[in-house]
Simulated scan of single mutants.
Amino acid sequence: MTTRDPAGTRNRILDALETLLLEKGMAQVTLESVAAAAGVSKGGLLYHFKSKDALLAGLVRRLGRRTEEQVRTVVDSGQSVAEWYLQNPQHYDDADAHELALYRSMLAAMRTVDGPVDQSGDETDRALFEVLDSWKGVLDNEIEDPVDAEIIRLVGDGVYLRALLGMPPVDAEVYRQVVTRLTGGSSG
């Protein structure tokens, strides 16, 4: 007897979407291509996601859940959220599976953006805005000075943008010094 696993199917669809975005880009993402990559019918995909926008928003919301889980892990371990946010994605070779999943999800989500992200826009824009805004809140909670928190957020965003564009990473020693300076000497 076969049991249905809606969460498993839903994640398989989102994994397929993520892979298509990372390997081929947004132009190649259709409901049909995602369904084929996930090994489900188009009707099966539409059962879980009523439209392409809902599918993309589902990917971004999963990114949000992964981010919340990772932030909880960082906080529970006593680590600095700022240092975690400033991680250089190219150094994820040694990272655990959760960090790698978060990184892949973030890169895939960024590839869904085809214009300014508008919190009053479509479902995908709203979901991405919520995820990005939640990171700002976490940094604001840890860093007393709101300007320092914003600088850390902007540098972390820039690091991810470099990774998204496939640019080479900043020299590891220089980057360590950047993190140390931004976090008040607590890194190292």
Rank of each mutant, 00 (worst) to 15 (best):
A163C: 14
D145M: 10
A54S: 08
R10L: 03
G156T: 12
V138G: 00
R61P: 08
Q87K: 14
K52A: 05
A57D: 07
D76K: 09
N141A: 15
F129V: 12
G158I: 11
V40N: 00
G43R: 00
D118I: 10
H48S: 02
K52Q: 10
Q87S: 15
V170D: 03
L21K: 07
E123N: 05
A57N: 04
D5S: 09
T112F: 02
Y92I: 14
R62G: 06
F49R: 06
D148C: 13
G115H: 01
D5G: 04
L86N: 03
R181A: 13
L63Y: 03
G184A: 10
L17Y: 00
D118P: 04
A101D: 14
L107V: 10
K42Q: 14
L132C: 11
F49V: 08
P146H: 01
D94S: 09
P6S: 05
D171E: 11
N11H: 06
T9V: 11
N141C: 11
P169A: 13
A37V: 13
V178D: 02
E69W: 05
A82S: 09
L21E: 06
I13A: 01
K24R: 15
R162M: 14
D114I: 11
V34A: 05
D171R: 01
P169V: 08
L22T: 07
L165E: 10
D94V: 12
D76M: 07
S187V: 12
V29F: 02
N88W: 06
S80P: 08
L154P: 01
G137T: 05
E68P: 05
G184H: 05
K50N: 15
L63N: 04
V117T: 11
R176N: 03
A35K: 00
L55D: 00
A35I: 01
V29T: 07
A149I: 05
D145R: 03
V71T: 08
Y175A: 00
A37P: 10
H91F: 11
L63K: 02
D93G: 15
V71P: 03
L161A: 13
G137N: 03
Q79W: 10
V81Y: 09
A38M: 03
Y47G: 00
P116E: 12
L17G: 00
Q119Y: 05
Q119W: 06
M167P: 02
L128R: 06
E142P: 06
L63S: 04
D133E: 15
D125G: 06
R61N: 14
D133V: 11
H91W: 12
D114S: 14
D53Q: 11
A82E: 01
E83Q: 13
V179T: 04
D93Q: 13
G64C: 11
G64F: 01
F129Y: 14
T30A: 10
G166L: 14
L102F: 07
V113I: 13
V60E: 08
M110C: 12
W135R: 12
E142C: 07
E32Q: 13
G25E: 05
R126P: 02
R72I: 11
R176H: 06
D145F: 09
A109N: 08
Y85L: 10
L128Y: 08
A127V: 05
E173R: 09
R162Q: 11
L21Q: 06
G43D: 01
V174N: 02
A57K: 00
S120R: 06
Q119D: 12
D93L: 13
L132T: 13
V81E: 04
A54E: 12
M110K: 10
Q70H: 12
